[in-house]
Amino acid sequence: MTALLSIRELHCSFDTTRGKVHAVRGVSLEVNAGETLALVGESGCGKTTLARCILGLQRPDSGHILLDGQEMVGLSRRAMRPFRPDVQCVFQDPFSSLNPRKRISALIREPLDVHGVGTPEERKRRVLDLMERVGLRPDWAERFPHEFSGGQRQRIGIARALALNPRLIICDEPVSALDVSVQAQIVNLLYTLQRDLGLSYLFITHDLTLVENFADRVAMMYQGQIVESGPAQEVWRNPQHEFTRTLIDAIPIPDPDVPMGSGRKAFAG
């Protein structure tokens, strides 16, 4: 079986005002159909750059990105268009990821318009279906994004990502800007959608506890490289790399009986 998404020896660097940043240094990973791979790392580890490369927002220096065996590196934006429906994205910041001047219905319909899916009537129905699926009330269709809270905007973003029936969704810190109770709603929604639609997720996050029960496999990224990867439970219980151990230990566990700096005890439990 070939993986749905396969990344081999990817390198990516870019120029900033402080000089060249080699953000991704030879990353290889695979996402299989129907699974969730959690990509965990701290800020500046290169995880967002990696996501941008997969989405064709950033040109890698070298390496391969294979979608169902088809090479994506080197394709022009135009050449990538036919593959776009397969890979969609849910963005981190629900306040900047929706065009403030578009109505909700237009935002969710845009992907269908771009790819000419169905008749206008069918698109309209599809938008309402999608809104219902992500838990948005149909009478909100003609409102603007600024009328919604962060959690609801994230639902709009998810509906937009689902419109083209993708097989893989890149979730770039989709809940890190949300409150705990709303975060739970969105994580559960993503989980239910995966179960019902057979989606694959590349779930990028800095929060290990969040993906603990949610990811099938996990890849730990540190300074542009994958330092450890494997089945999620195994990595939590028996971390091999020094970075993974430090990270797990540093997690504050919501239990007064687990003292500061001993997160591994809680995970091993």
């Binding site: 989405l55 268009r81 994205c89 900047s96 990821s97 065009n99 771009v114 790819h115």
Partner: peptide
Amino acid sequence: RAFVHSCIVIG
């Protein structure tokens, strides 16, 4: 802005 990225991603 992310909404522009989102438009690129939908093609």
